[in-house]
Design a protein around this nucleic acid. Structure first.
Length: 419
RNA sequence: GGAGAGAUGGCAGAGUGGUCGAAUGCGCCACCUUGGAAAGGUGGUGUACAGGCAACUGUACCGAGGGUUCGAAUCCCUCUCUCUCCGCCA
């Protein structure tokens, strides 16, 4: 959500933002609806002022005068009612349009039509090559009893899986290692609700636009697709203390995604599943662009460092306009090398939002001058499982079909080789 | 799932149809007092929107949404949440 005053004063900037993000929103319509809204509201407020004034006179008036005042107030009341009836549909349109308005992307965000136009900003490690014919993560993991897709689909359906044996052990090792790694950087651990009210998804910007991708319950609650949702909801409608900033949470939760519209994509393996686990960095800071930028670089770097400590080759891309969300100002993706596919696959996403989310969540603080301000928010994947297992087992497989365990994980996993 | 009680400003807590944006206390801020502090005294202390260069003015907000009324924190309806008791239960 942007401030309507900002939209009014910067209509061209907002239109350019929509163009860059390939989002359709009728800014001119919003502005004209807003004009109507303001005219109508001042009319109503003037009439209510009159009503309040006369209502104060009524108790003191003598009975003849009282009769006439009440009579005139009855007509005024009818007029106010009529105006309010006109305002109601106008507000619905206004609100729907406001929810469509994108945040302004940073100048550094490149133009582009799709994720193919993301710009590589960094490459780390050598793309793994083998002297032998490498196996896919599905073959490797099935062979070592780490995963069971057949029973997974029997129980859950399409994209279902069980992690078992060393697959389950490796997941725990990664979670425990990630927990130690990120908490050492000053994060507060957080376990969050995964069933949330609708308002939280509006807050993060997942609704209204990504409605088909979220699961809904019969009580009209929703399953989160990322712990960002419930972590951001934590301080909704609260006024925070500036001294607390930056607030750094390391949230952990299952994540649920319907993956509607991607039925043909990544149908095999653990790349794309309906249900996974994610450790997530979520940060709230003061309303400063410089601070947002600093923390954005920092959280992205945290995840890079984590991947480096595992020794998996990766690259970092700067997402182009078409590949960043409605609320995001700028986004980096970290992509890990997947030898079986001969390409990099997204594992992490670092974004900052300025006050786009906090405005919707109403998360504020009082600044040094005593002024109420909306905080800034950012988030970045720390580590998703089981997707991370794909690159892990494929990059560290050996000629005999065994899989080496990264040094950093050995103490958590308990052994150095799988198989 | 059943029965009951409740939701008021940063907090506690009055207020059951008109001068209540809301008593009082605590907290907080400023000033006075002091060598400094405490205590005491005086004054102040919400948010959002609209209009205005501004001072300021208007409107709304007493859990949320509707309704009754010239007028609602106060009456009525619906919903949400909290607490207590019973039942069930990881």
């Amino acid at each position: 959500m942007l401030d309507i005053k900002f939209i009014r004063e910067n209509a061209d900037l907002v239109k350019e933002a929509a163009r860059k993000k390939k989002i359709t929103v009728d800014v001119d319509r919003l502005l004209s609806v807003d004009d109507e809204r303001r005219v109508l509201m001042s009319a109503i407020e003037a009439k209510k002022a009159e009503q309040n004034k006369v209502s104060e006179e009524i108790p003191q008036a003598d009975s003849a005068r009282r009769e006439s005042l009440i009579a005139s107030m009855q007509t005024l009341k009818a007029e106010i009612g009529a105006d309010e009836e006109k305002l109601k549909p106008l507000m619905e349109v206004w609100q729907a349009l406001m929810l469509q308005v994108p945040n302004i992307p940073d100048m550094s965000v490149p133009d582009g039509e799709s994720d193919a136009d993301n710009v590589e900003v960094k490459q780390w490690g050598e793309q793994t090559r083998f002297e032998f014919t490498p196996q896919s993560h599905t073959d490797l993991m099935v062979r070592h009893g780490m995963v069971d897709f057949e029973r997974g689909t029997k129980v859950h359906g399409f994209r279902g899986y069980y992690l078992m044996g060393d697959g389950a052990r490796l997941s725990w090792a990664i979670w425990n290692y990630a927990n130690d790694f990120f908490l050492a950087k000053g994060f507060e651990p957080l376990l969050v609700p995964t069933i949330v009210r609708k308002s939280n998804l509006y807050g993060t910007g997942h609704l209204p636009n990504d409605a088909e991708d979220v699961y809904r319950t019969q009580d009209d609650d929703y399953l989160i697709g990322t712990s960002e949702v419930s972590t951001m909801g934590l301080y909704s409608d609260e006024v925070l203390d500036q001294a607390q900033f930056p607030i750094k949470f390391l949230a952990f939760s299952p994540c649920y995604r319907r993956e509607a519209g991607s039925h043909g994509k990544d149908v095999k393996g653990l790349i794309r599943v309906h249900e996974f686990f994610k450790v997530e960095q979520v940060v709230l800071c003061e309303a400063s662009h410089a601070e947002s930028v600093r923390l954005h670089e920092w959280i992205n770097r945290n995840t890079e460092e984590f991947i480096e400590s595992l020794g998996i080759p990766y690259r970092t891309v700067l997402n182009c306009g078409a590949d960043i969300g409605q609320g995001q100002v700028k986004k980096y993706d970290i992509e890990l090398w997947v030898p079986g596919e001969g390409k990099y696959r997204e594992i992490s996403s670092a974004s900052y939002f300025h006050d786009f989310q906090t405005r919707r969540f109403n998360i504020r603080y009082r600044d040094a001058e005593g002024k109420m301000r909306y905080a800034h928010s950012l988030n970045c994947t720390a580590i998703p499982t089981p997707r991370i297992l794909v690159s892990l087992v494929e990059n560290f497989q050996q000629a005999d079909g065994t899989v080496r365990v990264p040094e950093a994980l050995v103490k958590y996993f308990g052994k150095a080789v799988i198989g």
